[in-house]
Design a protein around this nucleic acid. Sequence first.
DNA 1: ACAGGTTTTTAGGTCAGCCTAAAAATTTGT
DNA 2: ACAAATTTTTAGGCTGACCTAAAAACCTGT
Lengths: 222, 222
Amino acid sequence: MLISLTEENYLKAIYSLSHLEADADVSTNQISDHLSIKAATVTDMLKRLAEKKLIHYIPYQGVKLSEKGKSTAIKVVRKHRLWEVFLVDKLQFKWDEVHEIAEQLEHINSDELIQRLDKFLGKPKFDPHGDPIPDANGQLNIVKAIPLNQHKTKGSFTFVGVAEHSKTFLQHLTSIGLKIGDAVKIEEINEFDNSFKVKINKTNSQFFSNKVASNILVEEKK
Amino acid sequence: MLISLTEENYLKAIYSLSHLEADADVSTNQISDHLSIKAATVTDMLKRLAEKKLIHYIPYQGVKLSEKGKSTAIKVVRKHRLWEVFLVDKLQFKWDEVHEIAEQLEHINSDELIQRLDKFLGKPKFDPHGDPIPDANGQLNIVKAIPLNQHKTKGSFTFVGVAEHSKTFLQHLTSIGLKIGDAVKIEEINEFDNSFKVKINKTNSQFFSNKVASNILVEEKK
DNA sequence: ACAGGTTTTTAGGTCAGCCTAAAAATTTGT
DNA sequence: ACAAATTTTTAGGCTGACCTAAAAACCTGT
């Protein structure tokens, strides 16, 4: 059965929306907002995806991926993230420049291509933003990263990923001098506005607003 | 102005068909056959392409690319051939495996991507089949390669490209042991059926039917 | 429990890109 | 030169993926 580019994008949207809250059904309006497509159009598509057994759809109740739908969505995510690694590692793109191009490349259809690309890139486990790359069987590394702003005490962490992928946010981090893998030490938490004073790699002192801190994912330093 | 994937394929078809005979207009049926799309549909599309000023179209007379149409087609060809180099040189695909994947990749839209890919590949001048890669300005290397079967006398040549790109033909050449760049010496021409006895790289003796020889492009050995 | 607001679906329309069948234009053979 | 064959276009239809407007279902607060 062939799945169109458009259908792949709906599946991908449902997949990522379903991870916002644990296992909740995804609503028509959520998909509509996420894809900037009118709700009526989304309803049309949901009916078609349900006929193809890619989703479980109950009118007025929302939608959930079927096993088939889920594995399709994960394959698209795998391709997207592998291509991002290619663009950054091999073609020297910046991490804030690759999303739009990967949105196109993720729909290229060839299992052989992806398998070889994966090998060529050294079977990477994470993309340039720190997001885990599903393996060929769709298995994802469990990442226990937590937004910086959820830490309420001083401590030392490693910056492992971002929760927000917009160009402006990524460029902001670049201008601050924060890169994946950097050491981040919380030196002070301002109780008034929950902003953070941190030190990056032991030398670079910075202030993060709570909003910025909420999009910086860290792990306990080992 | 945006050009759809489908429109790009029509422009590419017109471009390659217009090179079969010098500067002749391309007919509706030629395009129809080449793309396996019914003639009535082709007529529809030609009207749309003409409205967009991508072609010069006179009903019942045929079609010719405009400057804009030609540069669009050449860009697609450039992308196709660069991606083929990537697939063969970097991902170790065989030369008979890359066409279908490149047909998809050629429609990825990003000037920056192509410029960087070109650099990454070492600004190659030819694709894995010996076809010239247009440069960023659309300029093509003039190739003076001639089908082997047009040579009527013994002589020494270099194999520089193929006139036929089908999997079976390419696999045939691989099984014979003929690769781009190999030395090809005509040792005998059979006058009865115009088949050729040749020696490849001074050691490998082979017979070529006229049909095979007609698809092997060679240059005089320098 | 039901009025008012929100969400979702239904109904009907558009456009791109394909199709078949039939009509019109062009080319070919004698 | 003109009938027959071929090529091309026109006419009308379909499907996927979008839209707007209106109806239906669902939720919420008193």
